[in-house]
Structure formats: C-alpha cells, structure tokens
Design a protein around this nucleic acid. Structure first.
Length: 595
RNA sequence: UGCCAUAUAGUUCAAGGGAAGAACGAAGGUUUCCGGAGCCUAAGAUGGGGGUUCGAGUCCCCCUGUGGCAACCA
C-alpha cells in the first residue's frame, strides 16, 4: 500500500521485464532538493550485470515506470540517479490512508515485555547534567519501545549503599551539627551533596598532610583517617549497627525527597524501583550454579572466576576469595530478579559508556548461564556530557546542577516569551506551565538530538537554543497549527472529509515535501526503536517542523484558490500537528496549544 | 602496552557504501497577507596516509589527536 513498497515492486518488475534481472538490490532514497522529483532510484548496481551505461538503464526503467506503474508521472536522469515524480492521486491517496489511521506511527502489540532501567542515581549527591541525559534518554527509549509494540517497565535501580554514601554520612557526623533540609533551607539531595564535598575537602587535606610527612601518594590515599573511618562505617552498616543505619536512613530519606521533586519537575517516573541495599547480596546462587555448570572456575585462594579470553574479553572475578560479592555478582543477581519479577523478554540498561566493558562481560556471562532473557539484554551506552573545560566532577564542584539548570532554563523561557510579546493571548495563570513546557522542551531536545553514543558538549555561556534546530521552534509550529485549527472550527470548515479535497489536483512542491516527511513517521519510529536512539526522532521532528514552516510560507491556507485546496491544507496542518505531538511525546517533550 | 569509542564549516551537530546537510554565529533580503521563536539568498568542512569498490565521511590497514576501559572498585 505505501508508496515506497509499490515503487520497489514496480522497479523489480521493470528489471525483470526489461532485462531479465532478478533478485537485485533496489535502493530508493529521497530526491535531493536541487532536482525534480520525490523518489530517487540508484541504478549503479545494475551497470555491472547489464554491461550498459547507467543513463541508458535509468531511462529504460523510467520509461517503463511511467508507462506501467500508474503512480509515476515523469522522471529525469542525472548520471546513475533516476528521479521520479509521482501523481497527485498517489499523494492524496496515501494522505487519506494516513488521516484514517488514528494511531499512525504506532505498531501492533508484540506481546513482549521489556524493562528499561535508567536514572539509577547514587544517594550521596544531587543530580547533574549527565544524569539528565541519562533520564531523558531512558524515558524516551521507554516511550519509543512502547510505540513499537512492547510492554515497557520503567525501572530505577537506586545505588543507596556503599562507601560513597558513607563519605557523606561521615562528614555530616563531623560537621553537620544537626542540620536538616528544613533548618538549612536546602533540598535534601543538595544538603547531602554538600557533605560529600565536605568529605572530599577533609580527605584531600589529610592526604596532603601525610604526603608532607613523607608518605607516598598511594599510601596516603589509603591511610588518611577520613577514608579509614568511612570504611569502618561501611562495615558497621553491613553489620546493621543501629546508629549508623539510622543515620543512613535519615540521610537517604532526605535525598529521596529531593529526587522526587526533581523527577516530578523533569517529568520522569518509574514503574519499579530497586534499591541496591536490597540487591547487593544477590548473585551468589548464580555463582554456585555457574560452578556446577562449569561456566565458572575456582582459584586456589577461593576466588571464583570466568575465563572470557575466547570471547575477546579477560579473566573476570565474579566472587572474591573471601566469599563476598563484587559489582558483577550483584548485577547477575539483579538480572535474575528482574526476570523473576516481570518475566521480561528484553532487559535494557541505560548507563554511561564508561561501563561498556562491564556490560559486555555481564551479557556474556548471562548467555553462558543459559538465561532466556540474555539475548534480549542491551546496553544503551551514552557518552559523557562535557563542559568547555572538560569533564564534570562532583567532588570538585565542577558540575552543572540539574535543578539549577532547569530553573535557569525556565527563567530564559519566560524572558524570551516576554520579549516576543507572545503571552498576550494567555491567561496569567497559564504562563508558568508554558514556561516550563518550553524550558524543558529546549533542554530535552538539546540533550536528545545528539547520537547517544557520542559525547557531547554543553557550554553554559551559550546555553541552550531556543531558535532554529531546537524544541521551541517545533513547539511553535504546533501552536501555530492549533491556531489555524481553531479558526477552521470557528468558520465551521469541515476539512476532515477526504472527499472535500479529493479534487485537489495542483499540489505545491512544499505540500508534497511536507506530505512525504509526514508519511515517514512509522519508519522513523521503527528505526529509533531498533537503534535505541531518540536522536533519530529528534531530527525527524525538526524535519517535520521545517517542512511545515516552508509550506506555511509558500501556501496560503484560508486564502487558497479553491475550497479543495483550503480544506486539504487545513487537513495537512492537522496531520502535521498530530505528528509533532506524537513524536515529541516519544521524546518526553510536551507541546503547547498557544505560545 | 592492549581493548572500545571518537575526529565533518568559526562553533554545535546530521549524513542506513550512493548527489557532503542543518543550526548557531557573521553578510544581505523579507512584515499592506492565516502566528516573523518564521521565510529567502550567499559564504564556509570530511585530521594524515594507504587499500577494497563503478562509487568511501561511512568498510579494511597504518599514523596522529581526544575520551573511556583494562580492579577480588562501583
């Protein structure tokens, strides 16, 4: 039914009829702006078997298509590129098909469950820009997979225990003086983060002092009293020491309060929350199972290992000589736990690329252990967000704080909106929500438009775009269409009846370009799902908005020459609004009706 | 040292082996007309060297730069 498949079929037919060629690759791409036509067939691949010039072959196929394909009206040949123009009927027919499908862009239920784990913060400090990239990616990947037909469970594995938490706790014990979020006016996560930084100051000073006394750097890092105390605290926590556990609970609760506020503000939520304090002991049964199966082996000192050298990896310890867990042990256990809880078919981890190796090892092990879900494990690996002067480091305070950044974005959104005088048509009480939509949209789009696996640069001086290739431009096009649809309704124009524009026979090239972009929606959603890449949809949403802007500038809607043209253009606008809203939703971005 | 990423315009990013594209910035134009956060015009780039191919930014090899990993850390 869709244009592309019809064309491919007809091209195959042409190759068979004209040249007796079968099973040839058929490569269609969209025609470049500089040439006439909408679809371009590459004929280079046929030159070899046919021993003929590409121009000859292209011309022959072109003639055949015009005569036999029905939907092709004319063609032109540039080197080995056969540019095709399609009939108005073909465009209008596919447009009607799209209009009739209220769920255009979504796929049928696959009857498969996938868990997407993302966010996964440590509870010793507030969220920063890097976490935002993670949260936005995870959320978007979950939405995309859902549109692709999966049942999605969004999970958050909170790292609420370990030496880093003890660092904050220790510093609080030493310097906190009973400070609380309410007494200090600080958000809970920020308060705890403050003591994490305090710890680092103390620790660094102690190292320096020890070094001054002639101790080597490495030894000083191990012997500094602060770190020794923190380690002692961790042991006490593991033994269930009442005082330590009480402090841990208190400070974690502060952090959860802070996180909840941030999550709520950035529009992120979860279906299932795991805590490492509950899962960190898991996995030992898998170690035993692996030993029995011969997947693992035990070294003389008792450490359990796996030899992955045959797979291009190394020897990896999965359990310490003293019988305690390492990182990978608990991840094996948690993988099983997730399966037990939900019987998932796929398990996706949104985690930074510094853990690429870890996940290769984990997935490899779970395959060797014969887990049914192992083939469906996938690491959405993303690059770090860097500042102009390099990486962000929490301990050194060179981070872009998530809460501050969001607030700043909201401030800028208000400023720009006021500057443009765009808030006149809105009630004052609607404005804060609008600013929030625009600010978060800009931020999310900025972080999502870049290919996840690439590192990206954030320059606080230049901030985030509100113009050009940016969410506000896309949102603006949605708002502008809503305005048109309101007018259409006011004027009682029933643009949604296909027969009301069926006679429209003079499509403008901007209309065809826009239509062609809109038709690509399902393909783009599928691509984004297969690649776990929201950036594909971010780019697409911009193409749609740009296509609409061009159309809007070139084609008058309410002053169109005929009622058919007018009705078609309103319907085209409505379809564009649907597409923009649909795609941005998959990116976790809201669209306003007015802005 | 090994492994994995990565290198495109002044800057930030695109380009499923197929005609190198945007945006920002800087230059010029555009508002009697449905929303100018817009539209139009022009300038500007594949780190270096080999190879495979009809065709390479894309695949392979070497070199250089950058980031990450290579813990019985997480």
């Amino acid at each position: 039914m869709n244009i592309e498949n019809t064309l491919k079929q007809k091209v195959a037919e042409a190759l068979q009829t004209l040249f007796g060629l079968q099973d040839q690759p058929i490569t269609l791409q969209s025609t470049l702006k500089d040439f006439e036509g909408s679809h371009t067939l590459l004929v280079f691949p046929y030159t070899k078997p046919l021993q003929r010039k590409p121009e000859e072959i292209a011309q022959a196929i072109g003639d055949y298509l015009v005569a036999n394909a029905g939907i092709v009206t004319k063609y032109n040949v540039v080197k080995g590129f056969l540019n095709l123009s399609l009939s108005e009927e073909a465009w209008l027919a596919s447009f009607q098909m799209m209009r009739k499908n209220p769920a255009f862009g979504t796929f049928p239920d696959k009857r498969k469950k996938v868990m997407v784990e993302f966010s996964s913060p440590n509870t010793n400090k507030p969220l920063h820009l890097g976490h935002l990239r993670n949260n936005f990616l995870g959320w978007s990947v979950a939405q995309i997979l859902s549109a692709c037909g999966y049942e999605v469970i969004k999970a958050n594995l909170i790292n609420d225990r370990g030496i880093h938490i003890c660092k904050s706790m220790l510093a609080y014990q030493k310097f906190g003086k009973g400070e609380t979020p309410s007494s200090s006016g600080l958000k809970g996560d920020h308060l705890v983060g403050k003591y994490y930084v305090e710890f680092d100051k103390l620790y660094k000073a102690q190292i320096k002092e020890l070094e001054a006394q002639g101790m080597g750097k490495e030894e000083a890092e191990k012997k500094a009293p602060a770190i020794e105390e923190a380690q002692k605290m961790l042991l006490a926590w593991e033994k269930g020491d009442k005082e330590v556990v009480a402090l841990w609970k208190k400070m974690n609760d502060w952090v959860y309060g802070g996180f909840a506020e941030t999550y709520q503000k950035i529009g992120v939520s979860f279906d299932k929350i795991y805590y490492e304090s509950n899962t960190y002991k898991l996995g030992k049964n898998i170690v035993q199972e692996g030993l029995k199966k011969g997947v693992f082996y035990q070294k003389p000192d008792g450490a359990v290992c796996i030899d992955l050298t045959a797979d291009g990896l190394d020897n990896k310890v999965v359990q310490r000589g003293d019988g305690t867990s390492v990182y990978i042990t608990q991840d094996m256990g948690t993988a099983d736990l997730k399966y037990q809880d939900f019987h998932i078919d796929k398990s996706v981890y949104v985690v930074g690329n510094e853990q690429d190796y870890h996940f290769k090892v984990l997935f490899n092990i779970m395959k060797k252990m014969g887990r049914s879900y192992a083939e469906g494990m996938y690491h959405v690996s993303y690059g770090m967000v860097e500042l102009p002067n390099g990486k962000m480091k929490s301990r050194e305070g060179t981070v872009v704080d998530a809460d501050e950044l969001v607030d700043e974005m909201i401030r800028i959104a208000e400023e720009k909106t006021t500057e443009l005088g765009k808030m006149d048509s809105l009630k004052p009480e609607e404005l804060p929500h609008l600013y929030q939509i625009i600010a978060l949209g800009a931020l999310k789009y900025f972080l999502l438009k870049v290919d996840p696996k690439k590192k990206m640069l954030f320059n606080p001086e230049e901030s985030v775009n509100f113009q050009g290739d940016a969410a506000p431009f896309i949102q603006y096009n949605h708002a502008r269409i809503c305005s048109i649809l309101r007018k259409a309704e006011q004027d009682k124009i029933s643009y949604n009846l296909p027969e009301s524009y069926a006679e429209y026979k003079t499509l403008h090239s901007s209309e065809i370009d826009l239509l062609s972009v809109l038709l690509a929606l399902p393909t783009k959603v599928q691509e984004a799902g297969e690649a776990y890449s929201p950036s594909i949809l971010a780019q697409y949403s911009y193409e749609v908005a740009k296509g609409y802007s061009k159309f809007f500038a070139d084609c008058s809607i309410f002053k169109a020459d005929t009622d058919e043209a007018r009705n078609f253009r309103i319907a085209l606008s409505a379809q564009t609004a649907y597409t923009l809203k649909f795609v941005l939703k998959l990116l976790g971005i809201e669209v306003p009706d007015k802005m």
